[in-house]
């Protein structure tokens, strides 16, 4: 397979989450992390899953990734039932999960080395392409510990993009970064999404971040983890996290959310983790 062919966009997947339930048994209690969750995600759609911790959004992401198994229900990718991890669905974790024993280029090459039908120099060219895409041309041979938090997540993004997946699964990837770095990454991720045309499922507890990035924001509530509401976001792209219209939209969603919290749907004990209402500062 030639390198041009390799770099062509894979057709993004359509995901169908069907009636997923997941129960965790701990010593003292049984937690219904997900309770009959269904969700349709279109080809190339950018969907943000929002909710307080314990609402099962990360669990759902892991099930779509194939890293965890659902107790009930199934997830279909283009009609195919997901039974385990696959190169068509790449994951970006909150902790960058880069391998410290490899340099930046070798980290991005890791997934490519497992991809058949490529020559070594082709793999290197592909890795370089994606590192260029995330703006790290000058750090090919840097060690991971030498990079800033934002740069580490850029490497992780390049590593996730490199095998050319149909779906990108992102689990609070910017949660640990400072506000300025995050704003830059919001711009970059929108640009890359437009360019590489992936289906993206993005988990966050930051409503404003979700509104900034998503075509659709899916609101979860915990105990048991359920989908509460879905909000299509029609604001023009590229979006700026600080724009007024965006703030209005996220305000609306937050209002609804607080309503759920006050209704006693979510008890005080369950809402320990407050929502991050302010997209910029934390």
């Amino acid at each position: 397979m030639g390198i041009q062919q390799e770099l062509e966009n894979e057709a993004p997947s359509k995901l169908s989450v069907r009636n997923i339930s997941k129960i965790f048994h701990s010593k003292h209690q049984i937690v219904r992390a997900l309770d009959g969750v269904s969700l349709e995600i279109n080809e190339g759609e950018f969907v943000c899953l929002v909710g307080p911790s314990g609402c099962g959004k990360s669990t759902l992401l892991n099930i779509i990734a194939g890293l965890d198994q659902a107790d009930e229900g199934s997830v279909l990718s283009d009609g195919q039932r997901i039974s385990g991890p696959g190169r068509d669905r790449m994951v970006m974790f909150q902790e960058h999960a880069l391998f410290p024993w490899l340099d930046v280029l070798d980290n991005v090459m890791f997934g490519l080395r497992l991809k058949p039908n490529l020559k070594t120099n082709e793999r290197r060219e592909v890795a370089k392409y994606y590192l260029h895409l995330v703006g790290l041309d000058n750090f090919l041979h840097a060690n991971i510990h030498e990079l800033s938090g934002g740069m580490k997540q850029r490497v992780a993004l390049a590593r996730a993009l490199a095998p050319n997946p149909k779906v990108l699964l992102m689990d609070e990837p910017f949660g640990a970064l400072d506000a300025l770095t995050r704003e830059q990454l919001y711009r970059d991720i929108q640009r890359i999404w437009a360019q590489r045309k992936k289906t993206i499922v993005f988990v966050t507890h930051n409503v404003r971040e979700a509104v900034c990035l998503g075509d659709r924001v899916v609101l979860f509530s915990p105990h048991p983890g359920r989908i509460r509401h879905e909000y299509p976001i029609t604001l023009p792209r590229p979006r700026d996290i600080n724009s007024v219209s965006l703030a209005e939209k996220s305000g609306e969603i937050l209002q609804a959310l607080k309503g759920y919290l006050n209704d006693g749907v979510v008890t005080a004990a369950n809402s320990r983790t407050p929502f991050n209402t302010d997209g910029a500062a934390e």
């Binding site: 990734a65 194939g66 890293l67 991890p85 696959g86 190169r87 669905r89 790449m90 994951v91 974790f93 902790e95 999960a97 391998f99 410290p100 024993w101 490899l102 890791f110 997934g111 497992l114 991809k115 590593r159 095998p163």
Partner: peptide
């Protein structure tokens, strides 16, 4: 070893012996 290394490797298609040689051992 942080379990996340093995999870990340699995998503990239690493299994069994490959995970041991290329992830667990160097980690």
């Amino acid at each position: 070893i942080p379990p996340i290394y093995a999870r990340a490797a699995r998503t990239m298609g690493s299994r069994g012996i490959h995970t041991w040689v290329h992830v667990m051992l160097p980690a």
